[in-house]
Amino acid sequence: MPHKFNADRRDKIAKQRYQVTNWSAYNESLRQRGDLTIWVKDEALSLWTARRRTWRGGQPKYSDLAITLCLTLRVVYGLALRQTQGLMRSVAALMGFDIAVPDFSTLSRRSKGLALPSTKSRATTSGPVHLVVDSTGLKVFGEGEWLENKHKTKAKRKRWRKLHLGLNLVSGEIVCSALTVDDVGDPTALPGLLDQIGGPVEKFIADGAYDGTPTRDLLATRFGEIVEVIIPPPKTAIASPQSVLVPSVRDRHIAGIQTKGRMAWQKSTGDNKRSRAETQMGRWKAVIGPKLKARHFDNPKTEAKVGVRVLNRMTELGRPKFERVA
């Protein structure tokens, strides 16, 4: 990103200043993020009980919507499972609903492989998607560094999970996500992310980890040749032998960097918008948290999906509008 190339002379560069132009609406959206009526509605409690099965076996007591609602409150307010049960029990009492609240063990058991209720995605109604993809690491619940330092235990390999997110630059919505183990590369997780996008992708932006023929061939197969792929080639990249007669998109990017410089190339191609994905990662760790609460791998997958729904809901409540003042 541009700041990496300005590190040696940052003190000589004036910091850009922006001003929010919709403070009133944005402040109200920030207040609504903590409003219980935003997350708990009468329709959710009316569909609390699960439908009766027509085949043999035990009958579920709570619907998937009920479990999803409880897990959503857990993510929004940063609660443990037992505290989530207490909060939902008090909400039901205050609203006058005579319903049973799932206990903490039921929430843990049902979250494994939970099918989340479908939501209407704005990406399918706002035209082609301008997709920017990135990944970050999330800590896993465990003993941590304190136990190693306190009791001088043998240092264990740090465990973490990798969160992959795809952001639509047009709507600001997270349109695809995946949680994988730490040894899964970004290009390997990309097909699963693209499967979650129902509409066409007009522009694809990613960092250098996605640079390679498999990624470009995958995008061309899924979305055709109309998709604009913006992936920064590494410093050691060289043009292909056919670059003189039939240059590829990557060849043109290499030539543009050599002619204009990397910073000018980023601005002309829109690669600087990749910082939106990094901002989204920071937003995730600030709002949802940098650590996964669930332990077993299937449960953190559901936790990540619920986190995506929470951030998208907060985005729908209102976004700030900026204008540069200096």
Rank of each mutant, 00 (worst) to 15 (best):
R33D: 11
G57C: 11
D103H: 12
G78D: 05
D98Q: 09
L71T: 07
T37Q: 02
Q85Y: 01
I38M: 05
K41W: 06
W55Y: 14
R33E: 02
E43K: 06
W55T: 13
A100G: 08
T54I: 06
G86F: 00
D64C: 00
Q32H: 13
I99P: 10
I67T: 09
L45F: 10
F97G: 01
F97D: 02
W55P: 01
Y77F: 12
L71P: 09
D42K: 06
V40H: 03
L79E: 05
R82F: 01
Y77L: 09
L47C: 14
W55A: 11
D42T: 02
F97M: 01
K61H: 11
G86Q: 06
E43Y: 11
V40Q: 02
T54F: 04
Q85W: 00
P102Y: 06
W55L: 05
V91M: 08
P60V: 07
S29Y: 10
A66W: 08
L94C: 15
Q85L: 09
P60C: 00
A92F: 01
Q85K: 07
R51K: 11
L73Y: 04
W39A: 13
I38S: 03
S46A: 15
R52Q: 00
L94W: 13
A80D: 08
A50G: 03
S46M: 14
L71G: 12
R82C: 03
Q59T: 10
